[in-house]
Write a protein that binds this DNA or RNA. Structure first.
Lengths: 108, 108
DNA sequence: TCTTACATATGTTTTTGACTTATAGACCCG
DNA sequence: CGGGTCTATAAGTCAAAAACATATGTAAGA
């Protein structure tokens, strides 16, 4: 349930552009309260997404504080998110089928 | 969604003991119609489960056809399945939360 | 000023998953 | 009765992903 990170990032970025650290902080909102992503890997994921044209990024020199790289979702990224949503709906169906079958045989 | 294989195996084995090849055939029933597990990996998973005391196995010389190894769920395996079910219920909640948030922002 | 928090990033290792190959007995067909 | 195909289990290899560790610089606060 850790590859749930990618769709979560896309969802957050659709709402508005933000930088990496903020994504890490907000991730639990959407991916589950106790989802702790490895920070180092997150930046790697973001750069991979950028390489694939899912997000774009640029340094925001204007903002106060340390240098931040702000990420923004591309159109291609929006389409990918749509595909994720569809896949997750399917996953929901599979899980609920599993749980029904599980409950049917409980006490065995 | 491929680590869904383990709980599926446990669920199938709770219903009745069976051998590896049969598990592969029945897996789509519970893990989704188009879940094709890599055969080689499945046997590795099974042996790993046995090493952890989740399943036991023995050669069934009696059955017709080629040598089959029949797997059976242990009590510890049943408890693990229960924990899986709980985890999957949580996962369902997370996914449905995700989808709600997704739909709330659709058309952005 | 010294510590802590913010922010981004790289290096290494371990684990997992995908793809490939190997084996052996049983069954079917000509 | 010989050869191909199906059932069944298993090991080997390789690439991708995740976990774990470390590094760097800015800024805020005590």
């Amino acid at each position: 349930m850790e590859r749930f990170v990618e769709p979560s990032l896309l969802l957050l970025l659709r709402e508005r552009p933000m930088h990496g650290y903020e994504l890490i902080e907000r991730l639990p909102e959407v991916a589950g309260r106790d989802t702790r992503v490895d920070v180092g890997n997150l930046y790697r994921i973001l750069r991979a997404l950028e390489e694939d044209g899912i997000v774009t990024s640029e340094w925001s020199a204007d903002l106060p504080g340390p240098a931040k790289r702000t990420y923004e979702l591309t159109d291609s990224g929006r389409r990918l998110l749509d595909r994720w949503a569809e896949a997750l709906r399917t996953a929901q169906d599979v899980i609920s089928g599993f749980l029904q079958r599980y409950e049917a045989g409980e006490g065995r």
